[in-house]
Design a binder for these strands. Structure first.
Length: 649
RNA sequence: GGGCGAGUAGCUCAGUACGGAUAGAGCACCAGCCUCCUAAGUUGGGGGUCGAGGGUUCAAAUCCCUCCCCGCCCGCCA
């Protein structure tokens, strides 16, 4: 007999048993669903009910005596997995599993289901779009942004294994003014071929161009301030100019040739700012030269991104250009549709969307989880010069996504919570309440560097590529130190999956709502980071299985009576439960925690008991089967978060 | 000013959605363990006003209220 979810099978038996007993002894009590808790300690059994504490008050009896009554009424003979039910503590009812049967059920299930074990399929498979990464194609992906693709990819993986049809989308934000800035600089240089990794190359052009243009703009602002005798404006302009001049000095030092070239070329323009705005307008209008230029620069950068993401095994099913939504009628359709609602008004020549009014009129406060005094600020829908704004374009994009999916999950930093909320409210305003209800903002907190603020405009960032390379390099040194006898090729291979695994793990491991302070220590200290530990544990299990060099013939699962063995079996049996919870509540970090905890248990077991040389052949067979199951589950769990489960290291 | 998120051991973090039994790991520190299946391992030790204060409850890190502190947002940026 096998089970998709062994622990759940036991739980269901216990629930039924308790419900029956309740009906029998206290028929007047109408109790809803019976919930059972995991016990804090295996000695208390595996599941417990605290029902009697609640009943005690109603019935004016002691919890413990109620527990005794209920336990007396339980007929465990009609159940397969229940070994014993006992009253305990001040009034708990503890359920003990029959380990001989439960171990057999669990281990045979893992063996039979193999690399499918744990991935319990949903009863309602959906088409789901997970949009993630979506880094603007202006500069390399930096470490602050890298949390996004790793969370997004893990989320997509778990949803897919849950049986949903998942599509991973990258939203290419090529419409903003920033794209015009970098394209302007690139054109000024005569559209050169990259002399290094393309996104790095583009990033330098962006930073220098942006800096030079900013200084130019500020100098004009200063002249104006002098002309109109505004002391305040003058002080402000001077302060900002000083700041940017110091950045310029930094950039000039770092990239002297590029800096000189751009300074000369941009200097030829009377008003670079206006050139950029013109390019931005031309791009939105679909003017062929502008289209060709900006797409060319964006594509260059995206090539670099693809290269980076390939290193960590993150792929996309669809690359969606924001500009396509502007060039087609989709963005203007959204504007038309919104204009027709009573929630849009004109102010200073632009359209404003009154999100708060929508919330009031449609009574959405509770539905959106907003507190009563949370007034949603209005959203400006377009610029006075007729160009569009980000959130408006995102509304069009969202409608498009819902044409091909029932659920849309946007992996976007929590700093965009308000914009995501306004987007959702706009859907309600347009009558797409079903879309709104199936739009999820998967928010995550920022990754920061200790000491200074990352700023892509200023070129202050650590690139994701650098982190990956450094991690692999450090892993290589570590392997060489620990296993000097390995061949060069093996060392490289191990360094690769250890380094990359450590980076992935470090960014997926923490609850997304918590901020992460990036330190090299966190990622590269292989004592602190659990990924190599878990990988090592998996390799260790593989090693035992290699050495055993036999398939267990007659495992006696009843001999697995040690506490550690039972805890391991419970952990394996609980993997499907954990997977379901991680998926339903969008918590990929649970997977990382699980792998670590399973590794802990296995290592303790490894040190305490022999597998191959166990006292008897039957016990050895049982332990080999247990080790196989651990290896399988570890592999399955690591796979969910994109970490390699190695056979050797 | 308002909104949102966070605050748990010296440090990094689980646990909070759904309240249950002595609040758990890792790092760091101290002391042990390789004639034995991978020592990137393991055993033991100390270390906590769960930000503060109230409340609800048989039971609160978890729920409610007030406050403190930190981060983010409140743009014709994205």
């Amino acid at each position: 007999m096998i089970s998709q979810n062994p622990f759940d099978q036991f739980r269901q038996e216990c629930q039924t048993a308790l419900a029956n007993a309740l009906n029998k002894t206290l028929p007047e009590i109408k109790h809803q669903a019976i919930t059972l808790n995991k016990t804090p300690n295996i000695e208390y059994g595996q599941l417990a009910s605290s029902l009697c504490f609640e009943l005690a008050k109603k019935l004016h009896q002691k919890p413990l005596s109620l527990a005794e009554q209920l336990v007396g009424a339980i007929d465990k003979s009609s159940f397969n997995l229940i070994e014993k039910v006992a009253p305990a503590g001040a009034g708990y009812i503890n359920f003990h599993v029959n380990f001989a049967k439960f171990s057999a059920l669990t281990l045979e299930s893992v063996k039979k289901l193999g690399f499918e074990y744990g991935f319990v399929k949903t009863a309602e498979p959906k088409k789901i779009i997970v949009e993630h990464t979506s880094v603007n194609p202006l500069h390399p992906i930096h470490i602050g942004q890298a949390r996004n693709p790793l969370l997004g990819d893990a989320l997509a993986r778990i949803l897919q294994y849950r049986g949903h049809e998942v599509s991973r989308h990258y939203y290419i934000d090529d419409v903003g003014r920033q794209s015009s800035v970098v394209a302007y600089g690139y054109a000024k240089l005569g559209r050169p071929k990259p002399t290094e990794k393309a996104d790095l190359f583009v990033g330098k052009i962006y930073t220098v161009t942006s800096c030079l243009v900013e200084i130019n703009r500020l100098k004009k602002a200063r002249e104006l301030a002098i002309a109109v005798h505004s002391a305040d404006d003058l002080v402000k302009a001077n302060k900002e100019i000083d700041e940017w001049m110091s950045i310029a000095a930094e950039l000039k030092e770092k990239y002297p040739v590029l800096f000189e070239a751009l300074m000369m070329k941009i200097g030829e323009d009377e008003n670079p700012e206006e050139e950029i705005n013109r390019l931005n307008r031309a791009y939105e209008d679909g003017e062929p030269n502008a289209k060709q230029l900006i797409r060319q620069v964006s594509d260059l950068c995206l090539d670099g991104f693809r290269e980076t993401m390939k290193r960590v095994g993150v792929t996309y099913d669809s690359w969606d250009w924001e500009s396509d939504f502007v060039w087609s009628t989709q963005v203007s359709d959204v504007l038309q549709k919104l204009k027709a609602t009573p929630f849009v008004f004109s102010e200073k020549g632009v359209l404003e969307f009154d999100a708060e009014k929508v919330v009031q009129v449609l009574s959405l406060k509770a539905k959106l989880g907003l507190s009563e005094n949370n007034e949603v600020p209005p959203l400006t829908l377009g610029r006075a010069d007729g160009t569009s704004l980000y959130t408006t374009r995102d509304i069009a994009y969202t409608l498009w996504k819902f044409k091909q999916a029932q659920k849309v999950i946007n992996v976007i930093g929590m700093e965009q919570s308000l914009a995501q909320l306004q987007l959702k409210i706009a859907l309600y305003a347009m009558g797409y309440s079903e879309y709104a209800e199936n739009l999820v903002h998967f928010a995550y907190n920022l990754v920061t560097l200790p000491g200074y603020k990352m700023s892509s405009r200023r070129g202050h960032y650590i690139t994701f590529d650098d982190v990956l390379s450094e991690a692999v390099q450090r892993a290589y040194e570590e392997v060489s130190k620990r296993s000097p006898l390995l061949s060069e090729e093996e060392k490289r291979k191990i360094a690769d999956f250890v380094g990359l695994g450590a980076v992935r793990y470090a960014l997926v491991d923490v609850d997304p709502s918590k901020p992460v302070v990036f330190t090299w220590e966190r990622v590269l200290n292989f004592e602190t980071n659990s990924a190599p530990y878990v990988q090592y544990t998996h390799a260790r299990a593989c090693s035992i299985l290699r050495k055993a060099a036999r398939e267990p013939e007659k495992p006696a699962f009843g001999l697995l009576t040690e506490k550690l063995e039972r805890e391991l079996i419970l952990a394996l049996a609980g993997f499907p439960d954990m997977f379901i919870e991680a998926t339903e509540y969008h918590k990929p970090n649970m997977i990382a925690d699980y792998t670590n905890s399973l590794a802990d248990k296995f290592n303790t077991f490894y040190n305490a008991y022999p597998v191959i040389k166990a006292e008897s052949q039957e016990l050895s067979d049982a332990r080999i089967t247990l080790t196989q199951a651990i290896q399988t589950v570890m592999h399955n769990a690591l796979n969910l978060i994109g970490v390699v489960a190695p056979e050797k290291m």
